[in-house]
Amino acid sequence: MKLHLKIWRQNGPQDKGKMVDYDINDVSPDMSFLEMLDVLNESLVAKNEEPIAFDHDCREGICGTCSLFINGEAHGPDRAVTTCQLHMRKFKDGDTIYIEPWRAKAFPVIKDLMVDRSAFDRIIQAGGYVSVNTSGNTLDANAIPIPKHDADRSFDAAACIGCGACVATCKNASAMLFVSAKVSQFSLLPQGKVEAKQRALNMVKQMDEEGFGNCTNTGACEVECPKEISLENIARLNREYLSAALVE
């Protein structure tokens, strides 16, 4: 396949940045999207140009590092995949593809397609944990039975990979899906219930401080989420938050 690429180039946070055109030939439909970019980068290096910077690591859809906005969609046109799992067979010969970084105030661009998502780390640091020490001196793992249904739903929420597609997709750049997934994972388990209220308050406070927008229930985040994290989690977070705020 031959493709026309329009890729965002930005040489550092202060640079204004612009879309740059690239043509690429001999793209195999079996390539992953990032392998296509690898090939483009090899050709840039061959011309002694700086390759396009993009984040990626595991290339199997679990580390959450890759992050491209492709033709106006987070992680591209396929559903329930990250960019690294997107394959070129989803495109046609002669297509023009727009490739941009995540765009959100709380995710400043570092270079080209790479953004800084450390705001997510700080939200987790504000309460995304159960406050137990790691000594191992605790109850036997089977001491508290947990209904399978609850454990499964907790797992579904915990499957979030922290890629930020929800934020990039949301017109308000809200991080509610991310925050609610973590809050839900714990509030569905007896181990996490103990601090559930404080956790919701602290994480939401940090989310607001980081400059993420408000949730207006458009549901776009759920559609674009590569791990299909459910909107139900946002409803659960709202419940936790409201009941905690009432007590405050």
């Binding site: 944990y129 191992g136 605790t138 793992a141 508290i144 454990a151 994972q185 388990l189 181990q191």
Partner: peptide, 10 residues
């Protein structure tokens, strides 16, 4: 034991 206490959803 430790991981269950930390809320790992096995």
């Amino acid at each position: 034991d430790q991981c269950v206490a930390q809320g790992v959803p096995f």
